[in-house]
Design a protein around this nucleic acid. Sequence first.
RNA 1: GGGCGAAUAGCUCAGCGGUUCAGAGCGCCUGCCUUACACGCAGGAUGUCGGGGGUUCGAAUCCCUCUUCGCCCACCA
Length: 906
Amino acid sequence: MTPDTPLPPQYDPTGLEAELYGQWERRGLFEPASDHTSRPAALPPARPYVIMMPPPNVTAQLHMGHGLNNSIQDVLVRFERMRGRDVLWLPGTDHAGIATQNVVEKILAKQGKTRFDLGREEFERRIRAHVQETGTAILQQLRAIGSSCDWHRTYFTLDDDLSRAVREVFVALFDKGLIYRGKYIINWCPRCLTALSNEEVEKTETNGKLWHFRYPLDGGGHIAIATTRPETILGDSAVAVHPDDPRYQQLIGRRVRLPLADRLIPVVADSAVDPAFGTGVVKVTPAHDPLDFEIGKRHQLAQLDVMTDDARMNDSVPERFRGLDRYVARKMIIAEFEGLGLLEKTEEHHNAVGHCYRCDTVVEPRLSDQWFVKMKPLADPALKAYQDGRIRFIPEHRGAEYAQWMQNIRDWCISRQLWWGHRIPVWYCDNSACGKVSASRNDLDHCPACNGAVRQDEDVLDTWFSSQLVPFSSLGWPDQTDDLARFYPGSTLVTAPEILFFWVARMIMSGLEFMQEVPFTTVYLHGTVRDTKHRKMSKSMGNGIDPLDVVRLYGADALRYTVVSGLSVSTDLILDPADLEASFSPGRNFANKLWNVGRFILSNLGGPVRPLAGPHHNVIASAELSLADRWIIARCEDTVREATAAFERFRLNDAALAVHRFLWSDLADWYVEIIKPRLHGDQPGGDVARAVVTQTFDVALRLLHPVMPFITETLWRRLPGRGEAQSISISPWPASDPRAANPESLRRFGLLQELVGAIRSIRAEYGVEPGHTVRATVVTLGEVAKTALMHERSLVCRLAKLSSLDVTTRSSEAPEDAATAVLSDGSAVTVPLGDLVDKNKECARLKSEADRLTAAIRAQEGKLGNDQFVTKAPAAVVAQERKKLAAWRDQLGVLAEKRQRLGCPA
RNA sequence: GGGCGAAUAGCUCAGCGGUUCAGAGCGCCUGCCUUACACGCAGGAUGUCGGGGGUUCGAAUCCCUCUUCGCCCACCA
């Protein structure tokens, strides 16, 4: 669409948005280059504004969560760009180890194959091919919603550069003694066949059972234990009681015969046992429970692993259990205990069971050799950064969560038994006499100690190990690049609270460790997108909304407006997947309204617009300005201040709504209506009106641009003196100009609006035909108000459809039989009844209304006179019915009074 | 089991530490195709601001308590 094409009456974003985005991108407007001559002078501080996109999974499709997150980021980015900051918004994708591997394994499964059939190299190749195919989709989709990222700096966490950073970090931490390998209880996903970090386990409250079993004591008698996981009984290597528990003193040191397994195990005393839980006796299974593991260590107990990788019973258990799934084994074990008369009782018990965050399988605590990062030394500075105020959270209370996690941090299990990811850069010497373990930045082909053969660790690193580095790895670190110097640290991080610990906290820790500075100063955690039942939107639940559908049907601007105006700090965004119209039509309607105000203004400019005086882009009060002119300028100024402050405080909804109110309620509904005659030459002041409307509209477009970039760009370019060569996205942010503020005009015009509204109200109440004019008299409280109103008499007459307007300070001059309304300044407006109603028709109408009411009152009286109703119905209902009756009686009184005043026949 | 947040019109939410704060959008009702817009214009109805108690001249707004939702954390087997 060229600037000369006439604008159609309905805004249609189709095609237009993509075209504009292409132009912006081609012109490099989203790059932080400083050579845009048209870029406004930077406001202090001149530090670049850097925002780091939470990297979506490389194979992900855009969903509403992305839509929300990126809309917010883009609003902030565009706002700061217009304010003259050197802006970098760095986009990227995450290789998402487990998730991506799962996707490709699923595809393989359809062909009846597993990754083991293909072998590691071939499998990796397949994943790469898959990523290649789908990998750019999501970044392309981000363009569709207008995200103004710098696509030249796009990163992928498995890129060579970023992989180099990963090795650097691993080796540095290893050398510092902060990375170690060891055999501990870790969370194992029996479906993904890998270890998980604590954060990757989602605890869900489940209604389970607590079984009480009897273990026979060696030498007679028995002892009762309680467990939620009978299948691990076969791995028990002791029974523990609290050392001070008087009930069990004599048992300590004795032995019990473990049923089914038929082994003798000791009764030990350990203060980790809670005497109040269950029977006060706990079975100790060091290989399958973290607490038992600790107890086992203290008492040198055997660690007996009874399960396979995929959570079936292994060969260390009696033959009849071997190969059974853990839950089948559980049932069988319970049944056998029962058969032996050793099941004492079964209690209902609810506890939190861990699930894999990728596949939702119940996680098995399991003894395993894994790599860990010692977190305490990294967490302490990160906690301090928050306590010192170097990092702030929005909303603030999220900071407490962060602090709590940092204070109770546990070591991070970073090895994953996957094939898709950064392979752990550790080589083991095959020479058993040497056995050196080397972490290395470069691949090793021989042992640095003994020169013998080496083999690399088979495992890969947790995806988040690389994600945590992107604030600097994406800028070229470990090299000291110009980008790194210029853009680290960043400014704001915008993300969902779900990944506060996965990602945000770890970025802060690694940033402090390797860059000696926090990676960003503000963490804005926004809400979650939910459906009308407040369930989180997700593809698997089938309650998702595809943002691209919304873009197609309503436009990206409508999507962004909906999201931004509907989300306040610390609340969730509720959308109805079954009714897109309800959710997104307000945004579309606003875009269309804007479009039509724009069309109207543009088509009435009639040539070059005379610029008004003033250094800023706001127009300044001058003698030629009418009350309405001064009012809209003052409202515009208020809106500039309000929107700017709101954006600065992350209150994007407030900003959006402020501009919405200005454009729709003030500019369109009042100001444009008021200046129509002036524009059409019926009244003087046309030039002034054109100048004022153009400049206030220009300001409003710029204020709205961060939220609705496409439509504002389209309209803005058509304003006088502009063209395709210019872009609103790099136009200066509207400056506040104190001279434009005008409380007196706001007050006066407010009264005028009230007056017009009051007269319209009266007209509507009496059902006056739209084309019919009436007379009105305003009684003001003083001469000042009278004079002021006299100035605006013709305006009020037009807006309220009056044939005449008298203004007086004497109430005696108001008509006797009249409808009256009192305004907030104490003045009163009256309209003679004779103008409002046709006497005969009105009398008839009042009569019939009164008759209807009388009948209703009789019926109601009957109802309330009925004892059955009064005694049987709920008190609230009776009260309500009584209230109704009273209201009708009052109404009847009012009607009677009206009839009397009109002089209707009785 | 700890910690935190929320409860305001039928729906989604504002109301930013007391005194034009009882609001917006959607929905609903009435009337209008008024030469920018029916994705619109004008007018209108609706809430003892979750329950109870307290502080105060005055509270949706501050304090206490209860109820109901939601989130985070947690090795009670």
